[in-house]
Every structure is written in structure tokens, then in C-alpha cells.
Design a protein around this nucleic acid. Structure first.
Lengths: 420, 420
DNA sequence: GAGGAAAACGAAACGTTCTTTCCTATTCCT
DNA sequence: AGGAATAGGAAAGAACGTTTCGTTTTCCTC
């Protein structure tokens, strides 16, 4: 019965968590009196909690002099200890592998990136992953055992139990490889695998707490991450956000490379085709018609006003608006964020998309380009890793207040153990 | 500083809430020893909390003898006191007005319904509302002052601040009438206005806690209620779920009666048109072709195997599948629930819908007809009212642990009040 | 330069709550 | 009728937060 002794100790834990949450939300060094007014606790309580957090290494006294009050004895100010609970985010992209280390407070401690030449070669990619990780750890002067959480971002649908990928046609060979358990051998913490569009949504949500966001990851594939009131929505079997599979006729046909109908049409290869064939009649000053035309060429040409590139943009945004308008009408999100290479097309993209959405959705959400550009997914992964770590640090107390499962029936049999 | 005295008293409140939550979740009379094992509190603590809840009138000792254990001194068992915190749900439907009273434990205390002949006449509808309310209160032997919460369901988009309707074309005249403040004069509690499809979703969610649900309210209009992991999603400006506005061409045109493109096509009038004109070439044994053909005729004919009616169903479910497949791909919900008159078509409806969804969504959610039939919206409204009441009863303690807003800056000016 | 005001910090007394421990009460089984 | 099993109750002890008071440090004014 006394397995988990509770009591007034949970009160202490709660108040400590409360103080920690206050320090977190402030995002600046805080004086004790400020914590008092925010948490509505009394001075001795706050002081004791701060003391506990200091000995636990979570907060530290800041050397900055407190601003604002200029009279009386200067207060000691406290902040999250820089460098505490370092977390690692990894972006397993189709073209490059990126890593980033951040601490609990959100300070970036190190970053690293490497181009990937053969994304289908799991061994080669894995070697690249190891190098960016090592580089980050070295730059941040950290040992792998100190990392508090790891999040790996990748295209494809993540298998929730096995930590592997399902339906990841752009990364052939990865479906059979369990990257999380592979990495967990090197770290003393959990390693989480997450869909890249979901991470783009998490990155956007970190700037827009509590809002409802649809983040479109628009590159070779087309995926969406959905954040509902600040919470990432993964859907049944982690399979939410597969908007690339939206089709306009009655057949869900997959491409040779595993693309769904929508991403085949308006993904980067589709856009190149449009520029080379469907809209080849339109004048262009910046697009070459040889085989080396890339999607990025189209984007930058559109940003510079090239007529043919803009026609491609107009067409693809119209198709995207057709595909997404049911989702927008159903969810009515606050913001639609576009990330991926196409974000380089700039405001032209948003203008066309807005026009097409206005024709179909009645309420058009705010439209935004991801300000993190090609770093969106790494940033999202460190952000998610930080969220995991925060959850662990803050819910230790709250878990004690949650209910256990109910026994089906209550049966006592002489002296033997009870049925729950 | 001592405005809100906290202390060990919050611990008491927490534990009391915990015990209350345990009694709630159990849905059967509970012995103290069961509460102990579920809450992991000690016996004196649980006993004290029960005592407090008993004097507060929330729980009562049940007269049923406890089952399971058949040895030793029989334990007292406790349950939510029947009749505590009665709540009122009202369905302001286009054809009928319904009311229902339930207590905190979910026991239905009274129901009432009245047909509405002229839904555009606000005065007449309001008179009907008053009669069903009076009837319910009389049957439940309650005074309006005892009602703990009121939820009114209605088609249309609910204005979040004013408690009025926006965009409610099927209920003309209601946009200018503030029904919540009108009713709040009679009750001593808040009156909430809520979209009917949202309430259908809440009704479904009460049977399926924690799941992600899309509830389609399919009648003259077409609306969706969306529940994400057990939480109702209202969207920006409460405007989520307006799937009736989905269009397949590039123009969002509204009908004469304010219907959106999709609901004009496959709403009940659209279905009647299909049965009378587009599919008039198909044989029918049960459908009349005069002016009095109703949508309900089509549904029941389809349930009985009528060829023409089934063709209508096949066409409309195909259109619905086209419209909803982007939403399903984006959210990947656990369940899609269909409510409204069309649910009378029975399993034929689901079979056709499933076939069309399979062609477009890769993962098809479970499909269900609302088992509450035409009472879905009233049931959802009492359910939401119960949720409101539970939130108030359980979060009294939790609010004390939330943070206040942060001051912009901390400035002290001699003796004057601080800047927060 | 001295005194006062303002703000921060520290410590002890006090009250409330939970936990622990022991004992009593009731019922069924042998 | 006695024992075992379960429920219920009461008192001692520990932990925590609150209150209250006094001390320290700095800036401002005279």
C-alpha cells in the first residue's frame, strides 16, 4: 500500500514544477518576487523550490543584473541553467542529413549538415548520420550519454510501435531498418522517429503556441503536419497528414516511385514537367529547357517574375487549393505554413495560393512561408525533443494525480493476491 | 499577497477531486478500498474526501450491496448522488424542438419534443422551446434555478462571443436574436450555444472516449463535427466543420437558400432531385414521383433494396467520399459517424460509402451510423452540458496551479502600484 | 556624509494535511 | 462458538506551507 508514498511531498513537487514552469515561460532571468506574483506562491515556498531546482542543476543564478527596479537591495535573478538537458534533433532528408543540439531553454549549442548522394543506400546514409552527430557532440562539448532526448525526422509514415518507417518510398531500404533501436544503443535516452511534415508543424507551433496550424511540406513529396490548439495530431497509426495521396478522380493510383496522385502532379518533378511541357508555349527569360532544369530554378525564376514559372506556380497552387480546401473548411485552422524548397518562390506563391483559396474556402487562414527555410525539419525535431524533456521534467508530480486503470471486477480469494 | 490563500488546503482539494474523478470513471458504486487502489491515496484521506463530498451532496452511499467480496464486514459503497447537478440540453432543429434533462452521472431525468411548423418564425420556435423546457422541468420535478448548465444546439455557425448565430440560412431570423442571453434570464447558470454537428460529434465521443471522430450531420444541410482525441475541435471563430461548402469547381457559389455547393448537391433536396430526375430512368418499386416525395422515402426505399433509391445513395456517397477524402487523409480519424435522417438507410449506406472511400483514402476509418438516430443532437447537448459541469467541479483545485500572465516589464515607482 | 526609504533575504512559530499505526466492528466460514 | 477476513475509526508523528518578524543591502534626499 505504501509502495508510492504520497503526502505533502506531492505538494512540494507541484510547487517546484510550478516555479520551473514560471522560469520556463518567462524566457528571461526572473526575480523571486516576480515568480511569487506569477505563481501566487509565498516567498519561502518559492525560495525553497528555487533552492531545490538549483541543487538539481536545472536553474542557475544569472549574472545579469536585474532590470526594472532601481532601488533597494538588488534581487538575485534566476534562469534555466544554460546547457541543461541537451537534446539532439536529426533530419534524415532525401538530399541531406542534418543534426542540431539544443538545451532545455532552446539555445542552439551546435549544428551540422552533410549532403547525401545516394539516399537509397542505408549504410551510406547511416554513416552520414554518425558524422553529423559526432560533429555536433564535439562542437557542443558533450558526450552521447548526456543527451536527454533524440528525435529523428524522416519522410514517410512512422510505425508507432516499432520505431520504423512504413510507406517511405522515397527512402527505399529504410522500411526494414529500425533506426530508433539502432541509435538507442548509443544514447542513454529514448530515440523517437517522426514524420518530417509533423516536425515542420512542430517548428511552426513553437512560434505560435496554442494555435491550430496546417504545415505543408512541399518538395518532391507533399505532406502535411497538423497541430490542433498547440498539440501535434498524429492520427490513427501515425498516418495523419498524407495529403499527397489526395486524388481528383475515383482511383487512388500510386506512381512508379510510390507518389500519390497529388504529389505526382504538383511535387517538384511534376512542376518541372509543367515548366518543360505543358507551359512550354509561354515565354521565359530564366528557365532552361534542357534536362538539368531543377524545381529550385522554377521557384527562383518565379520570384524574379518569369512568366512561365509564374504560370507553373499559378497552376500548382490552384491544384493545391482544390485539394486542401476540404481540409481547411473542416478544420478552419489559424494558419497555413508552407515549407520546403518551394518557399524560395516567396510571396508570389502566397498571393496565388490565397487567391485560389479565396475562391473555395470562405474563410482563408493566414498564409505563411516557413521562416526556417531548409532547416525547418531539424528545428522541429529539436523542438519536439525539448517538449519530450519538458514533459518528463514537469509531469513527474502530475502523474501522481492521475488515476490508475480500473479493475474489471473486485474478487477476493482467501489470502491469494487480488485480481488487479 | 494573501488574496488567494493557498497551502495544504489545495492538497485537500486535489485529493477530493481525485476521489470524485474515481467515482465518476467507475460508473458503478465503489467501495473505499477500491478508491484507495485506484487513486493510490490512503484510507483516512479517501474517507475524509468521501465525507466532504457527501456533505457537499455530490456523492451518496448506495443502497445496493457491494458485489464481489463475500467475506468480512460489508463495505459501504458510494456513487454519484442521483439527480445531482441536473443539466439541460436543447436541440433547436429545423423540424422539431427537443429538450432533455440529465444529471451529472448521465441518468436521463426527462425528455420532451415538439414539432415545429414554421422554423423561420422565431417567436413561434421560442414558444416551442419554452414548452419543451417546462415539460422537462415538470417531469424531472426541478426548478429552473437548480439547473447547473444549459447547452442549445442549432444549425449554423455560432458566434463565439455574442452567443448568437452567424451564417444560419436555414433558420432565418435567428442571426439577430441572442438566444443565450434570453435564456440566461431564466436560469442561474451559463447558457451555451453550439453547432448541431459539433453536438453530434460530442454524442459520439461520449461513447468513444479519447478517439478522433468525424461526425457528419447529413440532412437538409451537411455539417461535420470534429473530435480530436476526445476533445471537440471548434476551429477559428467556431467555424470548423463547414464541409457543406466544399466545392468541386473553382467557384464557391451559395444556393438561393444559402446552401453550399456540396450540400446543395447531396443534401436532402438534392437527393430528391436525383430520385425524380437524374435517375428517373431506373426502375423503382417504392418511390412515388409526385411532389410529395421526401428524402426519408428515398432512405427507407434504399434500405428495402429499391434500385433507383440505391442508385441515388451510390451517387451521393461517391460525391461525399470525394469531398471528405482529403479530410480523412489529413486527419486519419478513428471513426466516421453518420447521423441525421439518412441514417435510416441503414447498412446499405455504409457499404457504398466504404467502397467509395476505399478507392480514395488508403486507410478507411471505421464507419458507423449514429445509434441515437434523431436524438443525437439533444444527447450531444446534454453531454456537453455535463462536461461543462464536470470541468467546473473538477478544476476548482487545478486552477490554483496555473500560472498567471506575465508582466511586460517590472517597474517599481515609489509606493505607487506596480505595472502589472 | 548621514539618515531614511525601498526592496530583498532569512528564520522561527504556527496551523493544516497526510501518513502511520493500532484497535474495534461486522460478517462469513469451519 | 471461534477464527479469518474485511471494513472502519482514532491518535501520534512528520512534512509542508503560511505568517510574522527581523536583518541586509542599495538608492535617494538632505
Amino acid at each position: 500500500m505504501a509502495d508510492i508514498p504520497a503526502g505533502t511531498a506531492v505538494l512540494r513537487q507541484f510547487n517546484t514544477s510550478l516555479v520551473l514552469a514560471a522560469v520556463r515561460q518567462a524566457r528571461r532571468p526572473l526575480r523571486i518576487s516576480e515568480i511569487i506574483s506569477v505563481t501566487r506562491l509565498t516567498r519561502p515556498t518559492v525560495a525553497q523550490a528555487i533552492e531545490e531546482l538549483k541543487t538539481g542543476g536545472l536553474v542557475a543564478e544569472s549574472t545579469d543584473s536585474p532590470d526594472g527596479v532601481r532601488q533597494g537591495r538588488p534581487a538575485a535573478v534566476f534562469e534555466l541553467r544554460p546547457g541543461v538537458d541537451p537534446v539532439l534533433g536529426i533530419d534524415l532528408g532525401p538530399h541531406a542529413v542534418k543534426a542540431r543540439v539544443s538545451d532545455l531553454g532552446g539555445n542552439t549549442l551546435a549544428t551540422s549538415a552533410r549532403a547525401v548522394s545516394s539516399p537509397h543506400d542505408a549504410v551510406a546514409v547511416l554513416a552520414g548520420v554518425r558524422r553529423v552527430i559526432d560533429s555536433c557532440l564535439r562542437d557542443a562539448n558533450l558526450d552521447s550519454a548526456q543527451i536527454a532526448d533524440v528525435v529523428v525526422g524522416s519522410p514517410g509514415v512512422v510505425d508507432p510501435v516499432a520505431g520504423r518507417l512504413r510507406l517511405a518510398p522515397s527512402m527505399r531500404g529504410w522500411e526494414t531498418f529500425n533506426i530508433t533501436s539502432h541509435l538507442e544503443k548509443e544514447f542513454r535516452c529514448r530515440v523517437h522517429l517522426e514524420n518530417d511534415a509533423n516536425l515542420a508543424a512542430v517548428a511552426a507551433a513553437s512560434r505560435l503556441p496554442g494555435r491550430t496550424i496546417i504545415a505543408i511540406q512541399w518538395g518532391a513529396r507533399l505532406g502535411a503536419g497538423i497541430v490542433i490548439n498547440g498539440m501535434l495530431h498524429r492520427g490513427k497509426d501515425n498516418a495523419a497528414g498524407e495529403v499527397g495521396l489526395i486524388s481528383f478522380d475515383d482511383n487512388l493510383a500510386f506512381d512508379r516511385d510510390g507518389s500519390g496522385p497529388l504529389e505526382a502532379q504538383i511535387g517538384s518533378t511534376g512542376m518541372i514537367n509543367l515548366a518543360r511541357h505543358e507551359f512550354s508555349g509561354l515565354p521565359t527569360t530564366r528557365l532552361r529547357s534542357d534536362r538539368k532544369l531543377t524545381a529550385m530554378d522554377v521557384f527562383s525564376a518565379a520570384a524574379e517574375g518569369d512568366e512561365r514559372a509564374i504560370a507553373v506556380l499559378d497552376y500548382t497552387t490552384r491544384v493545391l487549393a482544390r485539394a486542401l480546401s476540404p481540409v481547411i473548411l473542416a478544420l478552419n485552422p489559424d494558419i497555413l505554413v508552407i515549407s520546403g524548397g518551394i518557399a524560395h518562390a516567396g510571396d508570389v506563391l502566397l498571393e496565388h495560393l490565397r487567391r485560389h483559396l479565396q475562391a473555395r474556402t470562405y474563410w482563408v487562414p493566414e498564409l505563411e512561408l516557413s521562416e526556417y527555410a531548409e532547416h525547418t525539419v531539424v528545428i522541429g525535431s529539436v523542438e519536439l525533443a525539448r517538449q519530450h524533456t519538458w514533459d518528463r521534467r514537469l509531469t513527474a508530480a502530475k502523474q501522481k494525480l492521475e488515476l490508475s486503470e480500473y479493475p474489471e471486477r473486485t474478487v477476493a480469494n482467501n489470502g491469494a493476491e487480488l485480481a488487479w
